[in-house]
C-alpha cells in the first residue's frame, strides 16, 4: 500500500474533478426526477384514465429492472431508434427514468396518506379538484415525503457510480484510472473515494433527519 503515492496532489485534483462530475450528474438527475416524479405521482393519484394505467405499468417495469441495464439501454440502444445522447446526458436520462419510477411511488403514497376528510372539507368549501390538490394535498404530502425522498436521493448519488460502465469521467472512473497505474494505490484510493461519497451522503441524511424533526 502506498498512501503517499496514491494521494499525490495530481491524483487528488483528478479525483476531485471526477467528484465534480458526479455531483453535477447527481444534482441534475435529482432535480429532473423530482419534477417527473411529482407529475407521475399526481397523475396516478388523480387516477386519470388510461394515462394512469400506462404509467402504473411503466413504473412497475422500470422499478424491477437493474439501473445498470437502463444505463446501457440509454447509451447503446437508444441511438438505434434515433435518440442520440452523449454519455453525460445518457447517464442522466437513465438515472431520471429509474429514480422517477422509485420516487413517484413515494409521491403517490405520500398523497394517499392525506386523510380523505381534508379533501372533502376543501371541496365542500368551494375549491376545485385541482385547487384542492395544489393548495391542500400536495404541500402536506410533500412534507411527509421528505425523509424517504432524501434517502432515495442518496441512492441516486451513489448510483451515479454505475456510469463508470460507459466511461463517464466521474469519481469512480477516475479512481479506476489511478488504480490502473499501480496496484499499491488501489486500497488508499478506494478508501478516499469511499470517504468522499460518505461525507456528502451522510450530510444529506443528517439534513433529512433535521427536517423530519422540525416538521414532526
Amino acid at each position: 500500500m502506498d498512501f503517499i503515492g496514491a494521494y499525490a496532489p495530481s491524483h487528488l485534483t483528478f479525483l476531485l474533478e471526477g467528484f465534480w462530475v458526479t455531483l453535477q450528474v447527481a444534482f441534475l438527475s435529482i432535480a429532473l426526477s423530482f419534477v417527473v416524479s411529482v407529475i407521475v405521482g399526481v397523475i396516478r393519484y388523480a387516477r386519470i384514465p388510461v394515462l394512469s394505467q400506462v404509467l402504473a405499468t411503466a413504473v412497475e417495469l422500470v422499478r424491477n429492472l437493474p439501473l445498470l441495464l437502463i444505463i446501457f439501454f440509454t447509451y447503446f440502444a437508444l441511438p438505434e431508434i434515433g435518440i442520440k445522447l452523449d454519455k453525460f446526458y445518457a447517464a442522466i436520462l437513465a438515472l431520471v427514468i429509474f429514480e422517477s419510477a422509485m420516487i413517484s411511488e413515494i409521491v403517490r403514497s405520500g398523497l394517499n396518506s392525506i386523510e380523505k376528510g381534508q379533501i372533502e372539507a376543501a371541496r365542500s368549501s368551494g375549491l376545485t379538484y385541482m385547487q384542492t390538490l395544489w393548495h391542500v394535498v400536495l404541500p402536506q404530502a410533500l412534507r411527509r415525503m421528505v425523509p424517504p425522498m432524501v434517502s432515495q436521493f442518496i441512492s441516486l448519488l451513489k448510483d451515479t457510480s454505475l456510469a463508470v460502465v460507459i466511461a463517464l469521467p466521474e469519481l469512480m472512473n477516475h479512481a479506476q484510472i489511478i488504480n490502473g497505474r499501480n496496484v499499491n494505490y488501489v486500497i488508499p484510493t478506494f478508501l478516499l473515494v469511499a470517504v468522499m461519497y460518505f461525507v456528502v451522503n451522510y450530510a444529506l441524511s443528517i439534513i433529512s433527519k433535521r427536517l423530519e424533526n422540525r416538521h414532526a
Partner: peptide
C-alpha cells in the same frame, strides 16, 4: 416497447427541454 418506451419519451422530452 410499450410502457418502457413511454417513460423513455417522457424522460427524453424533459431532458431535451432542459438541455
Amino acid at each position: 416497447v410499450t410502457g418502457l418506451g413511454l417513460v423513455l419519451m417522457l424522460g427524453a422530452s424533459v431532458l431535451a427541454g432542459c438541455g
